[in-house]
Nucleic acid binder design. Structure first.
Lengths: 104, 104
DNA sequence: AGAATACATAAGCGGGTACTTATGCGATTC
DNA sequence: GAATCGCATAAGTACCCGCTTATGTATTCT
């Protein structure tokens, strides 16, 4: 919910990968677990942290828990990034082009 | 230099604050130290990590070391954020308006 | 009702992290 | 040249983090 929580939640590679995986669509915990080389509790813990940061939302259905990305949760991060993009737009965008292999 | 390093470098509140402080202009280590309630080695360690992540650059002048933001270092983060902004532009931007107290 | 499933929580462990004080090293000042 | 300054690095410490196994709690199946 706070900016600091968002940065910390996305700092861990596995947790960030979980978030990115959910970006492709809603998924149950067990379905997520099948995609990663960690235990089910580890997945649940990552999801709890992402949820606390406002980055994902949960939907219960019987004994299943379906998680999905909460796009609004990224707004504080988008906002933070935009502050610096506004400062140095040309330099950042130019490097982005380079990273994408584009020639000016 | 790698995306993971950037997220981790910005995850710590103090280190992120150091980066944000440098965004207002180049500054020596001692000048930075005066702004934070931590020791000089702590500042140097944060700067070393930000530098390793490509987020700041250093300029030596005599016994002074001046640090400044390296805007291109933010490109991978900007790129990551843009991927999700492209997914859900309206939802993110709408919340950003709400956060800024704007009415549609 | 009992077994099995889906998930969360508890407890514990090893490694990492952010800080401190102590020390080293080059540059400046006296 | 000796002392001082600006900064980096070393070493140590307390805490945090991500992971594991073990256990608990609903829900579903037979």
């Amino acid at each position: 919910m706070i900016q600091a929580d968002i940065f910390r939640a996305l700092a861990d590679p596995t947790r960030r990968a979980v978030f990115e995986r959910l970006a492709s669509g809603e998924m149950s915990v067990s379905a997520l677990k099948a995609r990663f080389a960690v235990s089910q509790p580890a997945i649940s813990q990552h999801l709890a942290m992402l949820k606390a940061a406002g980055l994902v939302a949960e939907r219960r259905e019987g004994r299943f828990s379906y998680y999905r990305v909460a796009p609004e949760g990224l707004a504080p991060l988008v906002d933070w990034v935009d502050r610096y993009r506004a400062f140095w737009p040309e330099r950042i965008d130019r490097l982005k082009d380079v990273l994408k292999g584009l020639e000016p």
